[in-house]
Design a binder for these strands. Structure first.
Length: 568
RNA sequence: GGCCCGUUGGUCAAGCGGUUAAGACGGCGGCCUCUCACGCCGCAAACAGGAGUUCGAUUCUCCUACGGGUCACCA
């Protein structure tokens, strides 16, 4: 008869605490109102933040905060092989960039906050050992001295016989080692892992209710799963049981790849005499390729990494709002009803999450982002573009920083009304959007279909009357006044009624002026643009364009640094 | 292969036994209009397949197909 207490003492002589002490004295229950969810996001410190991770983290954060609960950032660094230096701070920074903040947990590579610390698994070894020792005392865990080779042999044999592979039942060789055998192995210095003695057998069933998928029933666990690896560090499974119990997490939210492990977890909680938390498994974000769905891949898909969105200049709130539309599809309706509210006011519901994996839709993100940016005022746009440019576009940054008021004014054009423009979808677009406001960025790479002589006549006429101080009506009146002498119609409708009688209409006049001044066919309100640019600069561009039309100046030479493209 | 999950228009998705099967993005057409955008109006576009249960199935059950996940001293 095995003396479990003696074995426990032999294995864990350094452990003096009991689970009860930990639960009662060190990590007492939280004082929260009924229904408050305590959740956590628990990444490995690989330094790589996946958009799916942001999604899962956001769901956990929303679930906690909309219920009056707490959200924890816990670092799962039990696999030293995958660890990356600075990985924690990268993740914290990435999450912070997206406005996801935690009440407790890691705040940097070596810093944490909160009453249930430490929040880094490598610093919690003693607690795992307390629970493991307790299991040994109860005869529910034992040391296993099998080598990797032995395990491989075991598996090969099982596969040959067609039985479920794994360390279980009669195949669990070390299950019934005597105390003497164990002592001998220990004395010989043989490495060992701690395994759970599973009470299950093939065919047993377990049920649980998933917060997202509803009732799920599957085969119960019967494998003697590893609790502590040979280095004394727990496996994910055991760390999950101990940490979530001690941190008083009551709602586990994690990726759906963990569903298959739920039977193991439920059994571990049961063996430890602990109450299991509620589970909600989030579906992964997928990617469409060659007609089929697959998980967004870190290797193949640049948009899998959050850095992609940061570098492209998608506002963080745009990405979060897009993610929210995937999480709770009624978010869009809510947003329509609450145009100015912060997304944190949206009543997020865990059980409204879809059980199937959503395809990442860049078009939709763009739409959401354009919408988000259109709601910003010019100062917000300026501030955010400036911050983005500081990191990713030195030239743009220089221009914006040198003349803040000018930049703010250009962002104010066609912005702020009830129907703001939506042509900036990410900050990377700004350099192109604002190019004609800066000689340094200005290019001419479009041309009009219109007859060059007619264009010249328009420009000559317009140059004579142009005044950037004009109010909009006066400004447009001058455009109209040019029409008739040139055989054009000041009235578009009249022109359309009888196109043969005119050489064009007032729209064509403004098109020429727009092309001369902005170098492109389409722009926001031309009057506002000219007013901002000022008389001197407008005149210069008019003259320059006239020279180009006359062939006196090659297209390419018109712009410093501009190459190629010459008007025919 | 075993076990689990999923499958409504191109995409995200409402729906939870009886509906003309929402809405959003995208597409197309139109209106507005000095261009573009915005906005507005409209159009095309879906219940994976097959058996049941039922007076009646998108909705419930089973099977098939397809997709995904998982079967480690990785998380």
């Amino acid at each position: 008869m095995m003396d479990h207490a003696k074995l426990a003492q032999l294995l864990f002589p350094h452990v003096t605490q009991t689970p009860q002490q930990l639960l009662e004295e060190v990590f007492p229950p939280r004082q929260l109102k009924d229904g408050a969810l305590v959740t956590r996001f628990a990444p490995s410190p690989t330094g790589f933040l996946h958009i799916g991770g942001v999604f899962t983290a956001m769901v956990g954060e929303r679930a906690a905060h909309t219920s009056g609960g707490r959200v924890i950032l816990r670092i799962e660094d039990t696999d030293k092989k995958r660890e990356v230096k600075g990985g924690v701070s990268q993740i914290v920074q990435g999450l912070t960039d997206f406005g996801i903040t935690f009440d407790e947990g890691a705040t940097g590579d070596d810093t944490e906050q909160g009453d249930y610390a430490p929040y880094t698994q490598s610093k919690r070894a003693q607690y795992y050992h307390v629970f493991c020792k307790d299991l040994v005392e109860k005869g529910l865990a034992y040391p296993c001295f099998c080598s990797a080779e032995e395990i491989a042999e075991l598996r090969a044999g099982q596969e040959e016989k067609g039985v479920t592979p794994g360390y279980w039942g009669e195949y669990a060789k070390c299950r019934d080692l005597t105390l003497e055998q164990i002592e001998e192995n220990l004395k010989a210095g043989k490495p060992y892992v701690m395994r759970m003695r599973s009470p299950g057998k093939p065919g047993d069933r377990v049920k649980y209710k998933d917060g997202i998928r509803g009732d799920i029933e599957m085969e119960a666990n019967f494998v003697d799963v590893v609790l502590l690896k040979s280095d004394g560090i727990p496996t994910y499974h055991f760390a999950h049981i101990v940490d979530d119990t001690l941190m008083r997490v009551n709602q586990v939210i994690r990726a759906d790849e963990w569903i298959a492990s739920v039977p193991i977890h439920l059994q571990m909680f049961w063996l430890c005499g602990l109450k299991a938390p509620k589970y909600a498994h989030v579906s992964p974000i997928m990617k469409e390729e060659d007609g089929s769905k697959r998980k967004l891949s870190k290797r193949k898909d640049p948009e899998a990494a959050v850095d992609f969105f940061v570098e492209e200049g998608y506002p963080a709130e745009a990405v979060v709002e897009y993610l929210l539309t995937i999480a709770n599809s009624n978010f869009e309706d809510w947003r329509k009803q609450n145009k100015t509210a912060h997304y944190n006011e949206f009543p997020f519901k865990l059980n409204k999450m879809s059980a199937s994996g959503a395809l990442f839709d860049m078009m939709k993100l763009n739409s959401v982002s354009a919408e988000v940016i259109s709601r910003m005022d010019n100062v917000q746009v300026y501030d955010q573009v400036l911050a983005w440019a500081m990191r990713f576009d030195a030239a743009l940054y220089g221009l914006l920083a040198a003349a803040p008021d000018y930049a703010k004014a250009l962002f104010a054009i066609d912005r702020g009304g009830k129907k703001p423009r939506k042509d900036i979808i990410k900050w990377k677009d700004v350099a192109g959007y604002a190019a004609y406001f800066y000689d340094e960025l200005f290019t001419r790479d479009e041309e009009l279909e219109m007859d060059k002589d007619l264009q010249l006549q328009v420009l000559e006429a317009y140059t004579a009357v142009m005044d950037c101080q004009d109010d909009k009506d006066t400004w447009f009146g001058k455009m109209k006044d040019i029409c008739e002498p040139l055989g054009m119609s000041p009235d578009v409708k009249a022109y359309k009624a009888a196109p043969d009688q005119f050489k064009g209409h007032v729209g064509d006049v403004s098109a020429v002026v727009r092309m001369a001044i902005c170098g492109r066919k389409n722009t926001p309100d031309l009057h506002a643009i000219m007013a901002l640019l000022g008389q001197e600069k407008c005149l210069r561009r008019l003259d320059e364009y006239k020279a180009i039309l006359k062939g006196e100046k090659p297209f390419a030479d018109a712009i410093p640094g501009h190459t190629g493209f010459v008007i025919k």
